[in-house]
């Protein structure tokens, strides 16, 4: 569906995307995951023909993003980072407007948005500016879907939306995928990675890793331990001071710790020395890393 995107994009001195290649299969739910400034939005804009790459080429549904931009503009759906709706138009007016602009009607593809639209239908006469974040997000998704696009580009659709709406949103995406729509989604939230078929972890315009979430986790090269104690801050200071420690960072209520050149006795040695420093009640446990652990490790490499 999207073939061999290789592009460098220079904006003055700032390299937003650096020699970036990516291949998304038809019908896939693909996630671009990285913090602000990783280049996610630039990639979306190149693929939706809004920006020209400096080098390299990209195709969407077989069309070249530079030469055949008109063909692409007809068959993709795009939801930019901020929910791009007319705040002073009602829910229904927004939807009608975007349907008409894309040369279709609400009725024609209603089956596609029915499930989502029904949730906001009670508010159809309300101005979009007066909707909650979650509802705006749903409306924006409806607007992006109304012309039955082959590929759906969602740029940080869950930013600024509460947990309940986020969860519902990802469920909607799964159902859309089942309808055969290819979805490219970006997010700064690592915990959303596992909801995608495949992901690209991005940092500073480069891909750190590209694979299924499972494979990325499996590729984590060392053992990861979770430590916990009454006073996390002093525990972390003491762990970091120990020469056996490779890395130690807070992760929720725990500290995630990896060890240098780990041997069978390393962990016990570390625990022993921590006990000597007064950490009597340490809880520890070997854990399976999550995407965020992988990202941190890849960033440091």
């Amino acid at each position: 569906m999207l073939n061999h995107i290789t592009k460098t994009y220079n904006d003055g001195d700032i390299v937003a995307i650096d020699d970036f290649s990516l291949n998304v299969e038809k019908g896939e739910l693909f996630g671009l995951i990285g913090p602000d400034g990783a280049g996610k939005t630039s990639i979306f804009r190149i693929l939706t023909t809004l920006l020209l790459p400096d080098k390299g080429m990209a195709t969407v549904v077989g069309y070249d993003v530079v030469k055949e931009y008109n063909a692409i503009r007809g068959c993709v759906g795009y939801m930019p980072g901020r929910f791009s709706l007319y705040q002073d138009l009602s829910v229904e007016e927004n939807l009608t407007f975007f349907a008409t602009v894309f040369g279709t009607t609400i009725q024609e593809n209603y089956y596609l948005i029915k499930e989502i639209y029904e949730q906001i239908e009670p508010f159809k006469n309300r101005r979009a500016g007066k909707l909650s974040g979650g509802m705006k997000q749903k409306l924006a998704l409806c607007c992006a879907l109304i012309h039955k696009p082959e590929v759906l580009f969602l740029d940080e659709p869950t930013t600024g939306v509460d947990a309940v709406s986020r969860k519902e949103f990802w469920e909607m995406l799964k159902r859309l995928k089942a309808q055969g729509i290819t979805i490219l989604v970006s997010t700064p939230y690592m915990d959303e990675a596992t909801l995608c078929d495949r992901i690209a972890l991005m940092q500073a315009g480069k891909i750190l890793s590209l694979d299924t979430p499972d494979n990325i986790v499996k590729a984590y090269p060392v053992n990861l331990y979770a430590f916990k104690d009454e006073n996390i801050y002093t525990l972390q200071q003491n762990i970091l001071a120990n020469e056996l420690t490779e890395s130690c960072f807070p992760f929720g209520e725990n500290l995630h710790v990896t060890l240098k050149d780990e041997t069978d006795s390393s962990l016990q040695d570390l625990l022993k020395s921590l006990k000597e420093r007064g950490h009597e009640q340490i809880e520890h446990q070997k854990i399976t890393p999550v995407i965020e652990d992988c990202f941190i490790r890849l960033m440091k490499e």
């Binding site: 990285g34 913090p35 602000d36 700064p188 940092q203 960072f249 965020e292 990202f295 941190i296 960033m299």
Partner: peptide, 12 residues
Amino acid sequence: SGVDPVTRRQFW
């Protein structure tokens, strides 16, 4: 919101 995991750790 929006910062990379390493920076976030430093912040915490």
